[in-house]
Design a protein around this nucleic acid. Structure first.
Lengths: 211, 211
DNA sequence: TGTACATCAGTGAACGCGCGTTCACTGATGTAC
DNA sequence: TGTACATCAGTGAACGCGCGTTCACTGATGTAC
């Protein structure tokens, strides 16, 4: 039966959200369209009224997963506005959240760069473009969120300096690599997995460590 | 027809080698057993005389891919023995080789940690165990290869200090994360992909950069 | 050393099975009058 | 405002297709005598 336009839009968004979560959990090749629509409370036949193909849905799901507001980096925005004022404390909060056992064990709600990078590299140029946009966006927001808020007369949206880009890329790459290695070793050698996370927390954000 | 024991062993090794290469190129889910045996010059039917299942072959292929002698890290052994004596120069050579466009564009002969980590995380505890062994081995060899060779009376095989482990884990995680991100963005934003590689080369091994 | 024969690595057809996609159909929606 | 009807989101069966795995068969190997 037909549903209202509002309901249809809601269903479509539900499919994208379900895909974004399931793809991060099981990989692009590990989830079928029937799994996704079932998870969204629908049947698989109607999927093609919304998306041209599974690949098109995967691209949209990847874009969605990089959405700033649902990423692990979301906390940064809040803390930048009214939260922690000290950039070093913000970095510490972010690094500890990212390199946590909880993030490692719940890829479905976690960083898409860590969960989908290897799959995206094999999924063709269009997916790579979506992925690159997400990574570039993360670099920008990550670097800006860690800038000092003083002095107040400096534009917080000014372009990144080469140094800012370099240190941000390095930190992001280390976090992504660490999370990826921690996940791959978690089931087979939990101690090594924890050691990787704890080591990188300390290396990236010195000072006290609270797991 | 039956073949000699020597030929059978050679065929089996050929299957493992083909699997190690194809899995790194296309992922564990992206290659069929028929692709692998065809690549090894055989038909798919006989595969099960050598391996219990596709998963068992995948595990053996992962183990093989981590083999020190065919890894990008292989150069380290040689250079440790009779090559570059300066640890800083060895680090530089390794980092530049690892974070090169060539390594990015040829995952089949490259680092299994970068190519298979995300797949391994989803492939069950047995695969994770194999992967964890490979990572631990890489930590050990990487750290030892970068030790100073002087003074000569210190045992080069002595256990790693906590500091050695920490800096090695950080460097490895950064290289893996960087390569993974460079691969995922290569087709969609080549400039960003190159920037990631170049930035990390400079950050991990300061001094001159030769691409 | 020679011969007869059991073994078994490899072949290629066949098997279920799950996948992405298509399609005839349904019936509530939303528009035209 | 009411009514008739075209639209189209969603359903569920059906389609090819490729996959992992099985199996009867082949014939060179390697062993027993």
């Amino acid at each position: 039966m037909k549903v209202s336009k509002a309901q249809a839009a809601e269903n479509r968004a539900g499919i994208v959200d379900a895909a974004a979560r399931l793809y991060r959990e099981h990989g692009l090749a590990g989830v079928g369209v029937a799994d996704i629509t079932r998870d969204a409370g629908l049947t698989h036949g109607g999927l093609y009224r919304h998306f041209e193909s599974k690949d098109a849905l995967a691209r949209e799901a990847c874009l969605r997963a990089f959405d700033w507001t649902i990423t692990p980096f979301a906390a940064l925005n809040a803390s930048h506005g009214d939260g922690e004022a000290d950039p070093q404390a913000r970095l510490q909060a972010l690094v500890h959240g990212y390199l946590s056992s909880s993030h490692r064990d719940h890829p479905g709600e976690g960083c898409p760069a860590a969960a989908l990078a290897v799959d995206a590299a094999r999924a063709g140029p269009e997916m790579s473009e979506v992925f690159a946009q997400g990574v570039e966006g993360n670099i920008q927001r990550f670097a800006r969120a860690l800038r000092p808020t003083e002095p107040a007369d400096v534009d917080p949206q000014r372009p990144l300096t080469p140094e800012e880009r370099a240190t941000t890329i390095t930190t992001l790459a280390t976090m992504v690599g660490g999370l990826v290695l921690a996940r791959a070793t978690a089931a087979g050698n939990p101690a090594l997995s924890e050691e990787i996370l704890a080591t990188l927390r300390t290396q990236l954000a010195p000072q006290q460590d609270q797991g």
